[in-house]
Structure formats: structure tokens, C-alpha cells
């Protein structure tokens, strides 16, 4: 039994929600329309900007005859592998820092400097050490791992000292504290780190592809630029946007699952 006022409130809320979604879509539509018209009526040079209708036909062409989907798949896979590697290694290092306050104190300034260092500058080194294929992973991991360490470690520090005191009062070992408190309590932090990493690892992968590779969206973008095919560049960028949206969506699903399974509030 809900009152009329409440029904009214729900209706207004729903209408507002619908309006937001509609407006979002119209922003995209307006942008595409403006782009199309501007290119068609010669406000801008289509050679430089390409145009949406051309993108669509060229997408069809590239997807079915060319290798666009393969390139997207390669970039996607590289990103996924990069994320997994940096999450694993980053978490292990964060755990080591928690385990040994001494090591964490000793290495703290190095982490700070590495965090500030533009990892792109390491590109040539990765290329020489790892070759054209694996240097992409090198770049992806280099960009995301330091942030992973810092975020996971700060997550550990946020876990209340008294929760660990409780564990200590039962005589828990460090391994038990890790397994029973630190890791499960850090799940929200892992998800937040994952969200940041999706973006960062993608940057690393595309950067790596710019520098060395012979496949992937980054390669297509560089190639399109070199042969002055703006349509190819634009299509690849669109695919990149789609890819990041999908990855982000997956992380969001993961978050919802974890929330439900582990009773986290919020």
C-alpha cells in the first residue's frame, strides 16, 4: 500500500531518469550530426576530420574485409593480460610491504619517484629488452603497476588496526591475518584499483603499440596517420572507446557481484 504522494514521487523520479538517458543520447546524436553537416557543407575539410557517414561505411568495410575486429581483439587481449599481470604482481608487492614495514620504509622513496616518472620514456628500453611483441606488455604493466601497489597498500592501511588486534587476541599468524582479514576486507579496494587500471593499462597498451607493434588498434591509428587516412584513425579511436566501455562494464558487473556475495554496503 503506497500513498498517492509516493506514487507521484516515483513517477517524477522515473521521468527524470528517462530524461537523463534521452539527453545523453541526444548529445551524441547532435555531435555526430554537427560533424556530418560541417564536413558535408565544407565548414571543415573532410580530409582532416573525416565524417560519420564515411566512418560507418569504412567500418563495415574494415570489419568484414579488413582486420579491424582482429586488431581490436588483439588490443583487448593485451589489455586484459596487462591488467591481470599488474594486479597480481602489484598485490604481491603490496602484501610484502605490509609484511615488512622495514622493506616498505626502505623502498618508499623509489616508489614515489617511479610513480612520478613518465613511463612512456621507458618505451625504447622495453623495445630493446623485450622485442616488439612483449614490449607492449612491458609498457602496459609499467604504467599500471605502481598505482596498483599504492592503491592496494593504502587499502591495507585503511583496514582498522583493531580488526587486526582482534585477530591477534586469538593468536593469529600473519598469514592468517592476510587470508582472513586483509584480502577479503580489500575487495572494494581491488575493484577500485581495477577501475583505474582499465584506463591506465589501455593507455600503456596503445602506447606500446604506437612504439613497436604490427597489430592492434594503436598500430592502426599510427598507420592511418602515416598514410593520411583520417577515416581509419577515427574508426580505430571509436573502437578503442567501445573497448574501454566494455572493459569498464565488466568491472562494474564484477563489483555488483562482489557486493552481493560479500555483503558490502554502499
Amino acid at each position: 500500500m503506497s500513498s498517492r504522494l509516493y506514487d507521484n514521487y516515483l513517477k517524477v523520479q522515473k521521468r527524470r531518469q528517462r530524461l537523463i538517458v534521452l539527453s545523453r543520447l541526444s548529445v551524441l546524436a547532435a555531435f555526430l550530426l554537427l560533424w556530418e553537416l560541417a564536413a558535408r557543407w565544407g565548414w571543415v575539410d573532410p580530409m582532416l576530420t573525416s565524417k560519420p557517414s564515411q566512418l560507418l561505411s569504412s567500418f563495415r568495410e574494415l570489419a568484414f574485409e579488413g582486420n579491424l575486429l582482429r586488431h581490436t581483439w588483439i588490443t583487448g587481449l593485451e589489455t586484459l593480460v596487462g591488467i591481470i599481470i599488474s594486479m597480481l604482481i602489484g598485490t604481491v608487492i603490496a602484501v610484502l610491504f605490509w609484511w615488512s614495514t622495514f622493506a616498505s620504509k626502505v623502498l618508499e622513496p623509489y616508489i614515489v619517484v617511479l610513480n612520478a616518472l613518465p613511463k612512456v620514456a621507458l618505451g625504447p628500453i622495453f623495445y630493446i629488452w623485450l622485442g616488439d611483441r612483449y614490449s607492449i606488455y612491458g609498457m602496459a604493466v609499467a604504467i599500471s603497476i605502481i598505482v596498483t601497489i599504492i592503491m592496494v597498500e593504502s587499502g591495507f592501511k585503511e583496514i582498522s588496526k583493531t580488526k587486526l588486534k582482534l585477530m591477534e587476541s586469538f593468536g593469529a599468524s600473519k598469514i592468517q591475518m592476510l587470508r582472513m582479514v586483509l584480502l577479503p576486507a580489500s575487495i572494494p579496494h581491488f575493484i577500485a584499483t581495477l577501475k583505474v587500471n582499465v584506463g591506465l593499462t589501455l593507455v600503456g597498451v596503445v602506447m606500446g603499440e604506437f612504439l613497436s607493434s604490427k597489430a592492434g588498434l594503436g598500430y592502426l591509428i599510427i598507420y592511418g596517420g602515416q598514410v593520411f587516412q583520417m577515416t581509419l584513425v577515427m574508426v580505430s579511436i571509436t573502437m578503442l572507446a567501445l573497448l574501454s566501455a566494455i572493459l569498464y562494464g565488466v568491472v562494474n558487473l564484477l563489483e555488483r557481484y562482489a557486493r552481493r556475495k560479500y555483503h558490502y554496503e554502499g
Binding site: 583493531t162 580488526k163 582482534l166 587476541s169 593468536g171 576486507a185 575487495i187 560479500y262 554496503e265
Partner: peptide
């Protein structure tokens, strides 16, 4: 093992 500690906050694990 003979001693049990009860703290000011319950510190139940949400997970």
C-alpha cells in the same frame, strides 16, 4: 587459548 578478548567494537567481518 585460555583467554578470550572482547573489544569495544564488535569487529564482525562484513564478508
Amino acid at each position: 587459548r585460555k583467554v578470550g578478548y572482547m573489544l569495544q567494537h564488535d569487529h564482525l567481518f562484513e564478508w
